[in-house]
Design a protein around this nucleic acid. Sequence first.
DNA 1: GTCTATATTCGGATAGAC
DNA 2: GTCTATCCGAATATAGAC
Lengths: 188, 188
Amino acid sequence: MSTSERLIDATRELLWERGYVGTSPKAILERADAGQGSMYHHFKGKPDLALAAIRRTAEELLATAEGVLDGPGTPYERIEAYLRRERDVLRGCPVGRLTMDPDIIASDELRAPVDETLDRIRERIAAIVEEGKEQGQFAPSLDGEEIAAAVLATVQGGYVLARASGSADAFDAGVRGLLSLLAPDRPA
Amino acid sequence: MSTSERLIDATRELLWERGYVGTSPKAILERADAGQGSMYHHFKGKPDLALAAIRRTAEELLATAEGVLDGPGTPYERIEAYLRRERDVLRGCPVGRLTMDPDIIASDELRAPVDETLDRIRERIAAIVEEGKEQGQFAPSLDGEEIAAAVLATVQGGYVLARASGSADAFDAGVRGLLSLLAPDRPA
DNA sequence: GTCTATATTCGGATAGAC
DNA sequence: GTCTATCCGAATATAGAC
């Protein structure tokens, strides 16, 4: 793998583990087994390298999410598959966690890929909910955009609860709670 | 206000804005208008001061949440009041954001107040859901603990979505989505 | 492209005077 | 209790040799 790729990969890992403010160029260089010269040759500096890393992570996450959401099954089943897909719950969301980073939020450039990724997943879920309404699987009174926001928020918030307690249980409980409310055959 | 109180308050603000790794003793001292000597006289160091600050913030948040949850109204109305209560959405949750801080998660002592606060709110909501089930307002099939986790996760995740997009809209959408699913008079 | 050397400021803390 | 002085390593970079 090229030095530049190793730098991006190391940065992706560290951004996930420690966030932007918690990640130093030195730590990146150590993990990538590269020298300072390489880093400043390939990238303008920490923000530039972080941008490349965030874009890569965002692309991958979007592809994974769309892969599940566009899979087989009824609208409810596809949303369930998204909520229940395998996750490294205690590590948190590699994209969502960036929203707690003040330097990311302060930079439109760094925030953009985060915003765009979550937004696209939300749109995709919203469309699936609308589909389910047409098929009579979901109540016509439900709003696709709102349900999509609730689904995404449950996932993102599930990570928070799980990390607070040190266990994935809270994430799973939240998902089961939301699914029990969303289930087409839910008893009134 | 005493120097020690000013140090705690400054630390609370900075932990909310920048997290633990993003908060330096120097920044705390500047905001508290105190000297280094004062800080190391009153506290053992950064972790000790942060612990005092986190405990204070956690207590306040718990009191606020319980105040709303124990207010008047039906179980549904009290959960709605909790979800809709005024929040500084774009600033994020002063307690929940700490879960994205690697140094907080790595320390059982610093994580404890975060875990305990979220857990107590969850328990309180779970009890209210059970109450609603007894009164026939919620379906008997719902699990109090799971619904409580979903409610808390929607709030915590709502902060994430809002900060990603730079607007409180996504938070409100998620809350409306969850409430539309939870509403007692929800059309099947 | 990569290396080493150097610079500047910050992070986190200790020592000792007042 | 608070202040100043000081310490040492890390953070973020630039310069210039190879």
